[in-house]
Structure formats: structure tokens, C-alpha cells
Amino acid sequence: MMLATLKAEEQSQQLQIVEREDIEDEDDLFEAIDKLTSHGINAGDVKKLQDAGIYTCNGLMMHTKKHLTGIKGLSEAKVDKICEAAEKLVNFGYITGSDVLLRRKSVVRITTGSQALDELLGGGIETLAITEAFGEFRSGKTQLAHTLCVSTQLPTNMRGGNGKVAYIDTEGTFRPDRIVPIAERFGMDPGAVLDNIIYARAYTYEHQHNLLLGLAAKMSEEPFKLLIVDSIIALFRVDFTGRGELAERQQKLAQMLSRLTKIAEEYNVAVYMTNQVVADPGGGVFVSDPKKPAGGHVLAHAATVRLMFRKGKGEQRICKVFDAPNLPESEAVFQITPGGIADAKD
């Protein structure tokens, strides 16, 4: 009987298409940039900031003055005035540990579709953080991305994010027809789910960076909860060749990762990025085929949570927490099913 009522509840909660009005408590997370006009900044200058992809006061303070004076039509004096006004609107100084704890309450954890994997991650993929999954091809990284596309749109009481999804695809592996069975598994309308995903295919690392800049406008208008970059490194491995360009590649990669961190913190979204692996010749005597994640230290330090995926038997995959500030190093087994990521069946 209990199951029947639960099922009925789930049916009644078929996808709630997310409306901006639902979200009142989030307004205190970021102040819109146009509030600067009430502090003596003229609307033309605010428009210039928006054209440069800055839509919130928090976002403004994430840029250096050098970068801001590089925006056409903004002099140093104007930038100083704008920054002063922004500081009045948002507190950028020290706060107490208790305040930080309160702020952490706004973190949403989005289910992966597998109970075991959720438990490993302390509840799911977190907002305000970057989660990186690396592993060989066919280890389940993109499958998790597709499942998250759907589970992010679930209401929060069903361990979803109640928000939209942005998907930047550098490898051409996004399949909308894959979303349909996953949506059906969660009892959602596939058409509505697909409408809530915005997708872009990137072909060069510069294109990838510009897509991230353009995202600010969309995120400031609509409630996004997840940004997927699949994969973060592919275009860098193509556009930069040889050791001579490695330093420049890492510099550009660092800038893009910094952009991702800012998006996660500015709009309270979860960032899920996949990464490729490279052969590691010095990776130890006891490992038959040693591999390590691509991207080096730059990428290692940028990701909040690093997950290592590897193949198990059949459709089973193993996820290991490789690095995380608040999770123990352990493993979980999950399975790839037609309805997305699910618990492994023995």
C-alpha cells in the first residue's frame, strides 16, 4: 500500500517546469548588476558590463580592475567608481565560520540515479563546486552526464535540482534520443526535459571559452542548476601541440577553469566536467597499464571533487573518489542501464 501511495505521489509530481518565481530564497545569493544604477552608476556603463558578460555584482568582483578597464568605454576612474558601488551592495570581506555554514545550506545535491554513487558523493553532485570525472573511453562519464541532464530537472524533494541544464559538447557525444528513456524512467515528459536543456557544440578552445562567457546572460535570466562540459580537455589537446605550446595551453586551460569556478559560485550551479586520461609511463611497476588524468596540476587544483571511473564486469562501472575536500577515499559500483545510471545488480 505504501508503495502505491509513493507511486501516486511520484505521478502527481511529474516534471514541474521550472519557473523563476519559485525561487525567492536565492535572490540573496547574487545581486543583479543593474542595482548599481541606484548607487550613481549610469545605465550606459552597466550595459557595457553586461555586454562583457558581467550580470551580477558578485561576478563583477571576480574580475580584476585591469580586465575591467579593458572593456571598451570604461576608464580607470569609472572602474574604481563601479567597484566602490558594488562593494556597498555586496560584502566581500571576512565573514564568520557560522556564516559560511549558513551559506553552505544553499548547496543543492543532485542525484546521479544510483543510490550507491550518491552515498559515495555525500548525497549527489554538488552545486557551488566543480565535479570532474576522468577515465578511459566507455567508462560511463558521458552516461552520467546524460542522466544528470534529467535528474537535475527533478523537484528538490525527489533529490533533483529543480533547474535547467547547459551542455557544452566538445566531442560530439550528446545524444538527445538517449535522454528520452532516462526521462521516462524518472516519470518525466521527455519533450519538456529536452526543452530545458540548452546545448552547444564547441570546435575550438576559443569557441569553448566564448560559450562560457555567453552563458552568464542566460543564467542570470533563468534558473540553471547544472553546467556540463564534456570534455574539458579535448580541444586543448587538439589546438595546442608539442611541448613548446604546453605552457600556453595550461595558462589558457587555467583561465577557462577559473571561469567555471566563477560560474559555479556566482549562480549556485553544479559544474560537471569530464576529462580524458593519458598514459603514465612512470606510473608504478605493479599497474599493468598505468594512466593518469590529462590536464596536469592546473586541472587537478581546479576541480573540487575528482572521480575516477573504470570499467567493471559487463555493464558495471566503478567510481572512486580520487580527491575531495570532504569525502573519504572509497569506491562505489554502479550500472549503465537504458534508463541511465542506476545501482548495480549482482
Rank of each mutant, 00 (worst) to 15 (best):
A4E: 12
K7R: 08
E9H: 08
Q13D: 08
L15D: 08
Q16M: 08
E19G: 07
E24I: 09
E24D: 10
D28F: 07
I41V: 15
K47I: 09
K47V: 11
L60E: 03
L60F: 03
K66F: 13
G73R: 05
L74C: 02
L74D: 04
A77P: 03
K78I: 07
V79Q: 09
A86P: 07
Y94G: 10
I95D: 00
T96H: 09
T96D: 13
R104T: 09
R104M: 14
R109H: 13
I110A: 07
I125W: 04
E126I: 04
L128K: 14
G135N: 03
E136D: 12
S139G: 06
A145H: 09
T147D: 02
C149G: 06
G160Y: 00
G160V: 01
G163Y: 03
I168K: 06
D169F: 06
T170S: 14
E171C: 07
G172M: 04
D177Y: 14
I179N: 03
V180E: 12
P181C: 05
I182P: 03
E184M: 15
E184C: 11
Y199M: 09
Y199K: 08
A202Q: 00
H209D: 07
N210Q: 15
L212K: 04
L215I: 05
A217C: 10
K218G: 03
K218L: 12
A234D: 03
L235Q: 02
F236D: 02
V238G: 01
D239T: 00
E245L: 13
L253V: 01
Q255H: 12
L257N: 06
A270C: 05
Y272M: 05
V277F: 01
D289C: 01
P293Q: 05
H297W: 06
R306G: 07
M308R: 15
F322I: 04
N326Y: 14
F334A: 08
I341D: 10
K345G: 12
K345I: 15
